[in-house]
Computed example of a mutant assay.
Amino acid sequence: MSESLNIADVFFAAIGRGDSAAVEALLLQQPGLIDTRNVQNVGAVLWALYHERAELAQSLAARRGRLDLAEQVALGHEAEAREEFARDPVLLQGYSDDGFTLLGLAVFFRQGALACWMIAQGAAVNAAATNAMRVAPIHAAVARSDGETLLALLLAGADPDLAQTQGIRPLHDAALGGKHAMAGLLLLHGARVDLRDARGRTAAMMAEEAGHAMLARCLRRFEGGFSLKNA
């Protein structure tokens, strides 16, 4: 059992660093590794995607054969995912085994068409991950600078001030990344500039700390609770 665990650790480490040759060698040695999960309860395909090893993820998916719904969503296997959702619409509110919402995975992995379809079908736009990150689809959209999906989420009722871990709001993330378009869209839909994270920082303070002086100046103009939504 100890040897099996050690091989699994080596396998996931190889995936993380994108070492396709090592991954292939380990799978030849122990084919069952393709269906194992690591200590975070993540399988090989999603682990590759989390480490931005898209080509390796596709290779692992092909070897694995039948994918679970989280893997289908993350890889953008839209036809298969839609079929699963049509068979059981409750799955639209589902989570991956490591606690992320399926809608959040679609957004984070830039599967915009599938994400917008899921939103239209009633996927919960404000549901947060059950893991320590507490991220929701709106945080993923801002992280990926995906304005189209962000707009779809906001129009469907996503909370522009929804907090994730450490009290980080979508506007905070936009400020830290110097994402003017994301910040503007959030402000237009009522995001508050006076909210602070767990360290007491406002969005303007974060933009300033990150060296985004112009965005910081713009955000300071709206401090004090003013919102473009009510302008």
Rank of each mutant, 00 (worst) to 15 (best):
Q58G: 11
I168Q: 11
L195P: 07
Q30F: 14
D197T: 08
F11I: 03
L26Q: 00
R64H: 13
Q40V: 12
G177W: 07
A61G: 01
A106Y: 06
G184T: 09
L103W: 01
A62W: 12
E83Y: 07
G122D: 13
R220I: 09
D159Y: 03
L228W: 13
A174F: 14
F11A: 00
P160G: 07
A22G: 05
D97L: 07
R199V: 07
L150T: 01
F108K: 00
E223L: 03
F12A: 06
G157H: 03
E52V: 14
E78M: 07
L46T: 13
G200P: 02
N41R: 11
Q164T: 03
R17K: 06
L154V: 01
P31V: 13
H51S: 05
G112W: 12
V42T: 05
R217P: 02
M214V: 11
A140F: 04
G99H: 05
L215N: 01
G65E: 13
E3N: 12
L228T: 10
H139T: 01
A113Q: 11
S227K: 05
G184K: 07
I15R: 04
G177V: 11
A124V: 01
G122Y: 12
N41S: 06
A57P: 00
V125P: 02
F109G: 03
S59K: 11
M133T: 01
L91K: 15
V142A: 00
S20L: 14
A140V: 07
G147E: 05
R17D: 09
A13T: 15
A163S: 14
E24A: 12
V142P: 00
A127C: 09
P31G: 11
S4L: 06
